[in-house]
Every structure is written in C-alpha cells, then in structure tokens.
C-alpha cells in the first residue's frame, strides 16, 4: 500500500492504517520531542498525546500544504515546545536555541540512554558543527529560515545552500 492510500484510509478513521503510520513515524516523533523536552518518559507521554491529537484531527492534514511527515513534525514540535514553556516560563526560548543535543553527542555518552548514539554518529560523520546545529534547528526544533539565519549568524541564502549540503552529507553517510 502506498503512502497516499494509507493516509487516505487513516483520514477515514481506519485504525489499521493509523497503526501502520504509527509504526512508520512514532520513533521519529519521539526523537524530535525528546530532543526538545529532554526527558524520555515525559516525551513518550507527549508522543502519545500527539498521536491522539493526529487521530482526532486527521482531516487537518492537507496534502497541498506539504508532506505528511512534515505535518507530523510540526504538531510534535508544537506539543514539545508547549511542554517546555510550561516548565520554564522565561528561559524556554533560550534553552531551545542553545541546547544542542544531536550536535553534541559526546555530552550524552555518560547518560543511561537508549538513544542510538552509534547510529547518529554514523549518520553525522564528517558533518561540521554548523551543519548539525542547522539540521537540529530546522528539523528538530522547527525554526524558520530567518530564525536559523539569526541564530547561526549567517545570511538566509546560506541557510538554504548549507541545508542542502548537510542533508547530502547525511545521505552519503547512509550509503556506507
């Protein structure tokens, strides 16, 4: 079954289709949420809530507005950022933009974490810090191009081209 059919069934409240979509994307959504919330247990709860929200709002997805995964990412990020806001009222934005998690893997070596550090290292092999930071801000934290440009202190045009080159590097690493 192709993705479009699956999504269309899910939108008609087909639980089996929803289960399949869950198995395709739940780990990714959890990864994104935990990257922001940095609390695996709480992240799992939020991830659960996100999927309930997705199910109840299935018709909120409009293919003309982008990819299904992009829609999921957006909902997950918003839920995670809401959590962050409720935990630390004043500093949430600062925390969000300065805590690099994916790009600072060494810092988590000592954690009793189930995160696939080896996998991540393999994917991010050879990527410069500026690359991993950009990936994290754009895909995990949902920053706009303008926000990324301001955060990394680079022109907007550079955000585009650097994004392209960083993703290409990851794609190369995936082939190894």
């Amino acid at each position: 079954m192709d993705l479009d059919t699956l999504i269309s069934k899910f939108q008609k409240k087909d639980v089996a289709a929803f289960e399949q979509l869950h198995s395709m994307y739940a780990e990714n959504i959890l990864g994104v949420i935990n990257n922001i919330v940095q609390n695996p247990e709480r992240s799992e709860e939020i991830c659960q809530d996100v999927f309930v929200k997705i199910w109840n709002n299935a018709n909120g997805f409009n293919p003309s507005k982008g990819r299904f995964f992009t829609w999921l990412l957006n909902i997950a990020r918003n839920a995670a950022i809401d959590e962050l806001r409720s935990k630390s009222h004043k500093n949430w934005k600062k925390n969000l933009s300065t805590n690099y998690f994916v790009g600072n893997l060494e810092a988590h070596d000592d954690m009793d974490s189930k995160i696939d550090i080896i996998g991540l290292r393999k994917l991010l092999k050879g990527l410069k810090e500026k690359c991993t930071e950009l990936i994290e801000l754009l895909y995990f934290k949902g920053f706009t191009q303008k926000e990324v440009a301001e955060q990394l202190n680079i022109p907007i045009g550079t955000v585009k081209t650097r994004n392209r080159s960083c993703i290409s590097q990851i794609r190369e690493n995936m082939k190894i």
Partner: peptide, 29 residues
Amino acid sequence: SIEKAVLEVTRAASPGLMPKSFEALRNEL
C-alpha cells in the same frame, strides 16, 4: 530521499518507544 535522511536522523535520536506503544494508544482511541 531528503525525507528519508531526516527520518533516519530523527529515528536515531529517539530514546526508544516503550514496547506495545500503539496498544496503549489504541485504548485512548
């Protein structure tokens, strides 16, 4: 292909779903 790369990275960043995660979800549904 781009989406696949992003999926790989975000998946690798997951702390790991609890087993039978969807069963818990199904009850909520």
